[in-house]
Design a protein around this nucleic acid. Structure first.
Lengths: 135, 135
DNA sequence: TCTTAGTGCTTGCAAAATGCAATAACAAAG
DNA sequence: CTTTGTTATTGCATTTTGCAAGCACTAAGA
């Protein structure tokens, strides 16, 4: 999506990550510590390779992700969140909380329970953790 | 989308509203006081009629919106948020805040500034207001 | 009654996005 | 110089979206 549909901040945001896949990649990095293309491919939602390549490129172009050669394996890339990407954390947490609240088939696990008990605390904790990883 | 792709609460949520239009309809009802099909059509993003009909039906099927005949005009329908729909408020506010923060072309207006200053207060205020409208 | 306007919805078709399977490119390891 | 791991591309079928036109129904007025 090249130009935004309006100057509403919600619309601008949805023009960037308003699809079924982008936020799952963000989730994988943010909450699951995933770093690479092959790790994203392994997730249970089974994203197709062309979609994954496309979304990684879009998220990098939007300066939400940054891509670097892995320091331990020169034929591998690692993706990490920029500050802009980290700032998606509250959105991810709120979506997770809503989803867990209204889906019987999405039982709250450790993180879900923690969010229910102390959402602000969870956001703060992850925010601190993620900020340390920004390069 | 009939069945969910996984039992992750984020995935389940995105299976419901993870597209470029659903949350804009929610925004129109939640923040702009819009009620009817024709009002949604007027928004600056120019949703197509077939998409609008489709999304209203999906959101109603998900019990996020409820549809009733207008009390003042019997040939008109009005849509309103259910409790489940109102609970999307924090997501909407967070998305709005992120969008305003990272888009120079999305200047913060009254609500945007209020969110920046006191996000929790805004959520509380709108939450109270919207709860009164639930039928 | 007949027309007119308002409102919600459907249809047809082209364009774009997605899903899926196969395979390519390339570096590192053995 | 073959194999393995990793990322990326391609082709094609399917699905979703965008757009334009028009249909169905109700209410209201001449």
């Amino acid at each position: 999506m090249e130009k935004t549909r309006s100057d509403c901040p919600i619309t601008c945001s949805l023009d960037v990550f308003g699809d079924k896949w982008s936020l799952l990649i963000i989730r994988d990095i943010m909450l699951r510590g995933k770093l690479s293309y092959s790790e994203f491919l392994e997730s249970e939602e089974k994203i197709a390779t062309n979609i994954l390549v496309n979304r990684l490129a879009l998220l990098e172009a939007e300066n939400i992700l940054s891509k670097r050669v892995s320091p331990t394996n020169k034929s591998k890339f690692i993706y990490s969140l920029t500050r802009k990407g980290i700032d998606l954390l509250p959105i991810i947490i709120e979506i997770m909380d809503w989803g867990a609240k209204y889906n019987a088939n999405c039982p709250r696990k450790e993180l879900g329970k923690k969010i229910k008990k102390d959402k602000a605390g969870v956001i703060k904790e992850y925010f601190e953790k993620l900020k340390k990883q920004v390069i």
